[in-house]
């Protein structure tokens, strides 16, 4: 069985007006099917990319996989454990949570501006009782910062003292602090400059090799995942329209939607 399995995942949003308004204006309920029976599996230590345009439901899926949002139907299992299992006690929940972490899109909103980097990085250690004692935590913070290409002295600074790329590194370090097995990367480079994007993508890739991490990579840009995704799933309006190994998807796309996405992606080559 695969490490991460999403089975018949559905999520509907209720966009209706309040009850009283609806009754007065005789409107029906308005439901939006953001995710519609999506199935995918991710092997341990590999990268699975979900690619889609705005409104494709890719971020909704990401939020469901980390447990920030409950599926309307279907299930997500990680290493055989069902995320939506209501009978788990708090300890079991925490154990499962530790294994799944997330790197967010915005380098600005994802770090608490009032916290020092050292506190941001040591918080997961405390929350999951991973490392006791201030000295040991400080050592671990230094180690994490080094792993993402930053220096020990950065622990004493505030997020606003860093550039977008550096903040994204801190965000990655925070995810690593929980010693997770799965990391959901939700458009981690879409707010970054191109030259910095490459740094972050390379970093994610080398961390994957070092720690055997499993990635679910959410993106709107096929090119971003070209070097690292083992498999790509293409989402269109909540439906998974095509899924192939990256090389195959790029060389022989099956669906028209995928072909359109591939041809629309801007290419840096001289054509005229």
């Amino acid at each position: 069985m695969s490490f991460v399995v999403a089975k018949d995942l559905c999520r509907t949003f209720d966009l209706s007006e309040p009850w009283i308004v609806r009754k007065l204006t005789m409107q029906p309920k308005r439901l939006l099917k953001a995710v519609d029976h999506v199935n995918f599996e991710i092997e341990r230590g590999t990268t699975y990319a979900l690619v889609g345009e705005s409104g494709s439901g890719k971020s909704t899926i990401a939020n469901m996989v980390v447990g920030l949002m409950q599926p309307s139907a279907g299930s997500i299992t990680i290493d055989g454990q069902n995320l939506g299992n209501a009978s788990m006690n708090r300890q079991e929940q925490q154990r499962l949570r530790r294994r799944i972490q997330m790197v967010f899109q915005s380098p600005y909103a994802s770090l608490n501006p009032r916290w020092k980097v050292g506190d941001i990085l040591s918080e997961p250690m405390r929350a999951f009782n991973l490392i006791d004692g201030a000295t040991a935590q400080r050592r671990r913070v230094a180690e994490l910062l080094e792993q993402v290409g930053m220096s020990e002295t950065d622990a004493g600074k505030f997020p606003h003292e860093f550039s977008g790329g550096q903040r994204q590194r801190i965000s990655i370090a925070r995810a690593l602090a929980s010693q997770p097995e799965v990391i959901i990367c939700d458009e981690p480079t879409s707010a970054l400059d191109v030259s910095v994007q490459a740094q972050v993508l390379n970093l994610l890739k080398s961390l994957q090799q070092d720690f055997g991490l499993t990635y679910l990579f959410i993106t709107h840009d096929l090119a971003v995942v070209s070097t690292m995704a083992n498999k790509i799933g293409v989402l269109n309006q909540g439906v998974l329209v095509e899924e192939q190994a990256t090389v195959d998807l790029f060389s022989k796309p099956q669906q028209d939607y995928t072909k359109m996405l591939l041809s629309a992606a801007p290419k840096i080559e001289f054509s005229s």
Partner: peptide, 13 residues
């Protein structure tokens, strides 16, 4: 450093 949709780029840094 700009990635491209190219089947050959998989696995490269």
């Amino acid at each position: 450093s700009t990635p491209s949709v190219d089947a050959k780029s998989f696995g490269k840094t």
